[in-house]
Design a protein around this nucleic acid. Structure first.
Length: 290
DNA sequence: ACCACATCCTGTTAGC
DNA sequence: TGCTAACAGGATGTGG
């Protein structure tokens, strides 16, 4: 699933190859992929035709292919989206929903499950997308995270998936980050201490940066803009590792369902009860015995 | 404001 | 072996 590291890997390649390229023609655009767009698929085709890309940005898991100071093509890869630059002679994959003729090559978006999205956006982008902090931005810190989670009751895993709080984390990196931070995924997010929020913020950055260095996680569909898979799936510590030994304590990794999403964690390294509560319970038990 | 749950979609896999 | 049903999940919409 393309999350921040995967989308950023694609962005880095496209930002070296797309700017100054002109769209000779919109060869194909499936209107079913155009969602929450202020203009129709037909109008998107009109604005793209003969337009020249100026820059490529990422906001959370969204890609923004700008054609001017204030207008951009917005792409989201959903679950199974692939965005690749290919020669026109290369056969198109099934479920290809967008094809832009760039002269020397084609930019193609395919997405079997169609959870992705194509839209047109105008400045200011970030406000219109209602996204929270980018975890790789300067503003993201343990203190900022603690503040964002304060007063909420949802499980921390669910909060991390909420793009309005932090933008870019998906199911894989939520589980990986909580494992590194040693925080149980079902803990109420508002109940995290400042120290735990600090650990979690550091873990999120570490996990995302490591994945970026491995050019993303290719668990099922993800490939980069050249069609190559990433390597980070070989470095996952909990995701997809149910029943396998925890790398720290050898306990079997557990899988649970949280908010309808499969959730992987080490029950020993990520205790549901924090140390201070266990101490209190212990004292209570002693009192009870006396 | 916050939260739980349903919805979209198709390829893959588990189960009978 | 071959069919059907369950499962995977990001964002959004609805109802509480």
């Amino acid at each position: 699933m393309p999350e921040l590291p995967e989308v950023e890997t694609i962005r880095r390649y496209l930002s070296t190859s797309l700017p100054n390229r002109q769209v000779k023609a919109v060869v194909h655009l499936d209107a079913r992929m155009v969602k929450h767009s202020p203009i129709t698929a037909e109008e998107i085709c009109r604005r793209l035709t003969d337009a020249t890309f100026t820059r490529v940005d990422r906001v959370g898991k969204f890609l923004l292919l700008s054609v001017s100071q204030s207008e951009a093509l917005l792409l989201h890869l959903g679950m199974s989206g692939r965005l690749v630059l290919e020669q026109g002679a290369v056969p198109r994959r099934p479920h290809t929903h967008l094809v832009l003729d760039l002269g020397a090559c084609e930019l193609r978006l395919s997405d079997p499950r169609r959870f992705g999205r194509i839209a047109w956006v105008t400045e200011p982008y970030r406000q219109s997308l209602h996204l929270g902090l980018d975890p790789l931005s300067r503003q993201f810190s343990g203190q900022a995270l603690h503040q964002l989670l304060k007063g909420r009751t949802v499980a921390i895993k669910i909060a991390l998936l909420n793009q309005k709080i932090v933008a870019g984390i998906g199911n894989i990196y939520a589980d990986e980050s909580l494992y590194v931070a040693r925080v149980h995924p079902a803990r109420s997010c508002g109940g995290l201490s400042q120290d735990e929020a600090d650990r979690l913020a550091r873990a999120i950055r570490k996990v995302l940066r490591a994945s970026l260095a491995h050019r993303g996680t290719s668990f099922s569909d993800y490939v980069d803009a050249l069609g190559h898979p990433g390597d980070n799936q070989f470095y996952l510590k909990v995701y997809g590792r149910e029943h396998l030994a925890c790398g720290r304590c050898r306990s079997p990794i557990q899988r649970a369902v949280l908010g309808g999403r499969s959730t992987h964690f080490c029950p020993r390294c990520q205790p549901y009860l924090v140390a201070s509560v266990i101490t209190t319970l212990g004292q209570g038990a002693r009192h009870a015995e006396i």
